[in-house]
């Protein structure tokens, strides 16, 4: 699935790395626990989370995650966006809550 399709499915805004929307992801995970992301995620392209801090971006970088979706209308601060730009990680925000955002993506076949 292209990141541009993720944007459409989640009615998301793009806050960082808009030039990378042609990149593809094949799986995703939804979590507010970064240590779980670090423990169990393998080759996940997309991280959906309700957590908003710079460690979300750092965790994504360590895991080679290509894009982050901040759910429930949460707005990352400028330093978070700058860090994502530096690492080449796409940042989305969506009004959908975590469960719904994951559900909508799963329905399209992502990660099935």
């Amino acid at each position: 699935m292209k990141l541009s399709d993720v944007k459409t499915v989640l009615s998301a805004n793009v806050l960082a790395c808009e030039n990378l929307l042609e990149n593809e992801v094949h799986s995703a995970c939804g979590s507010d626990l970064l240590s779980d992301v670090l423990a169990f995620v393998k080759d996940q392209g997309l991280l959906l989370t309700g957590l908003v801090n710079s460690q979300v971006v750092r965790t994504a970088e360590m895991m080679d995650i290509k894009a982050i979706v901040f759910v429930r209308g949460k707005k990352p601060t400028d330093d978070i966006i700058e860090l994502a730009e530096e690492y080449g990680i796409v940042v989305f925000t969506t009004e959908l809550p975590l469960y719904k955002a994951c559900g909508e993506l799963y329905l399209t076949g992502l990660g099935k």
């Binding site: 801090n53 460690q55 750092r58 965790t59 970088e61 360590m62 690492y87």
Partner: peptide, 30 residues
């Protein structure tokens, strides 16, 4: 807390430049 992870990130970059396999880089950086 905001800068925690900078060292790991820097090592990751170095390992990439050295051509270390991705799987190894991920283990080290995590």
């Amino acid at each position: 807390f905001a800068v925690a992870g900078e060292a790991s990130s820097s090592v990751k970059k170095v390992l990439k430049q050295l051509g270390v396999p991705g799987e190894i880089i991920r283990k080290v950086s995590i």
